[in-house]
């Protein structure tokens, strides 16, 4: 858990942290689109520059970003091997043990790698600089137009925020139950298949029972404090767009513009 960086919020005081979550979410989408516009090398360098700038402005350590990419290293290596075996176009680069490796194999892998790496870096930048709750608030606001299509934007946001609120509580609970069952001789690492199934059951059943109890208590508490689903509520947390948010959005729009421009005219 300690080295798990994907999706984790880092409480730092930085420019990126002060941005409006809506601006960050929209920017992320714009950059994601830009990644998939075939704008060649120049396009990738432009997006790359924006990402480097964003990392700098987020004060996140390079080690943190490096860790975030860990899950895809294996995938990329695997991809490279497949491409080398399958792709036989382009110029032959060199030959090992009678097996010729072509330039396109390398280029193909590189293209996919860059896109994947960019996507992960952008998502990590968003999640690491935006509190989960702010993200929910931002999403709720962005979903407002969808209310016309009868999408229950507020209810979705409420569900997400309650889930986020209870994740730490349930993790604590899980650890407690693991310890309680270990005290009864449950061994989660070793044992035969049947024993393992029992071990997992001995965790899941109590966790479910307790989560159900919590849900009931919480529903009572919410209702007692005047919560009525469907009824209009105000919201304590208000988001405000600042000049800096407009600048960031503009920058991302320019990137997308450049990409489209290159794709069409070059």
């Amino acid at each position: 858990m300690k080295n798990f960086t994907l999706g984790r919020y880092m409480p730092i005081d930085s420019f990126m942290h002060t941005l409006d979550p809506r601006a960050k979410i929209v920017s992320m989408f714009l950059l994601m689109i830009a990644i998939f516009i075939p704008a060649g090398f120049v396009g990738y360098i432009t997006i790359g520059l924006v990402i480097v700038l964003a990392i700098y402005a987020s004060k996140l350590s390079l080690r943190f970003m490096w860790n975030a990419l860990k899950p895809i290293y294996f995938m990329l290596t695997f991809l490279l091997i497949i491409n080398i075996l399958v792709v036989k176009s382009g110029d032959p680069l060199f030959t090992v043990f009678g097996f010729t490796i072509y330039t396109n194999a390398i280029m193909h892998t590189l293209y996919i790698a860059i896109r994947l790496i960019y996507m992960i870096l952008i998502t990590t930048l968003l999640t690491a600089t935006t509190k989960p709750m702010d993200m929910t608030t931002g999403l709720e606001d962005l979903m407002v137009p969808l209310k016309k299509l009868h999408v229950p934007a507020h209810e979705i946001a409420m569900i997400i925020s309650i889930a986020l609120r209870f994740i730490p509580t349930l993790i604590e609970e899980t650890q407690r139950i693991i310890k309680a069952q270990s005290s009864r001789g449950v061994d989660l690492q070793e044992g035969k298949l049947m024993e393992k199934i029992m071990a997992v059951l001995s965790l899941i059943v109590p966790l479910f029972v307790s989560a159900y109890q919590r849900a009931e208590d919480l529903a009572n508490a919410m209702e007692a404090r005047g919560y009525i689903p469907d009824r209009k509520r105000t919201r304590y947390k208000q988001l405000h767009i600042h000049f800096r948010d407009v600048c960031v959005l503009l920058l991302c729009a320019i990137v997308i513009g450049i990409s489209i421009g290159i794709a069409i005219w070059l």
């Binding site: 139950i177 309680a180 449950v186 029992m198 029972v209």
Partner: peptide, 26 residues
């Protein structure tokens, strides 16, 4: 034998017999 706070949350078997026998069997 360690009995945690609110140990009722460690019950999980279908019957009380099975639940009490779970520890010794382990």
């Amino acid at each position: 034998g360690l009995v945690f706070q609110f140990p009722e949350y460690q019950l999980f078997e279908e019957t009380i017999l099975k639940d009490i026998a779970f520890g010794p069997k382990n």
